[in-house]
């Protein structure tokens, strides 16, 4: 870590890219993902409730042009170390759209942000959102053979679309 902010390898860990996560619905997916972040010490015990509450008040599904992706996150006070937990669900679950609770979409890709210091993560956050705006990348993530493949796709995409403002 340096003053240029957190880099991809600082934020996205291979063991935090999950494949075939089984979830009955969006709440189940969020609970399973937040449990992992708490157990591995990235987030405080208050993180799961904060994520669920935030999802209720402000849904995190992004209605991209093609494949959809959800970006659940919560306030920095619940986070110990910044990281991103990326999951491909075994089957899509229904998610509400950001900005419009009445709009529902099927989501298989979930990028959970646990963010501590936005000054250090601005570039990487903007890069990742830009990456997610490319349907061919989401398509590759959906069709990747396994979690190693998903990690490599993310890493490659971040290098291609890297934003450096700070």
């Amino acid at each position: 870590m340096n003053d240029q902010g957190l880099q991809f390898v600082d934020l996205v860990k291979k063991e935090l890219v999950l494949d075939r996560l089984v979830a009955t619905d969006r709440t189940d997916a969020l609970s399973k993902m937040t449990d992992i972040l708490v157990k591995r010490g990235y987030c405080k015990a208050s993180f799961p409730d904060a994520i669920l509450e935030r999802e209720r008040a402000h849904p995190s599904g992004l209605p991209m042009a093609g494949h959809k992706i959800a970006i659940p996150h919560a306030d920095a006070e619940h986070v110990i170390t910044s990281t991103i937990l990326f999951a491909r669900l075994e089957k899509p679950v229904e998610w509400c759209s950001m900005g419009s609770v009445d709009d529902r979409m099927d989501v298989r890709l979930v990028s959970m942000f646990a963010l501590k210091d936005k000054r250090l993560i601005g570039d990487m956050l903007e890069t990742l959102i830009t990456v997610y705006q490319h349907d061919e990348i989401l398509d590759a993530l959906i069709t990747a053979a396994d979690s190693d493949g998903m990690y490599e796709i993310l890493k490659q995409a971040v290098q291609t679309y890297e934003v450096r403002n700070s």
Binding site: M98, L125, E126, V163
Partner: peptide, 15 residues
Amino acid sequence: ACGTAIATSTVVARK
């Protein structure tokens, strides 16, 4: 403005 002012509003403001 966004839900938490940590993730999405950062990206939106920059864009």
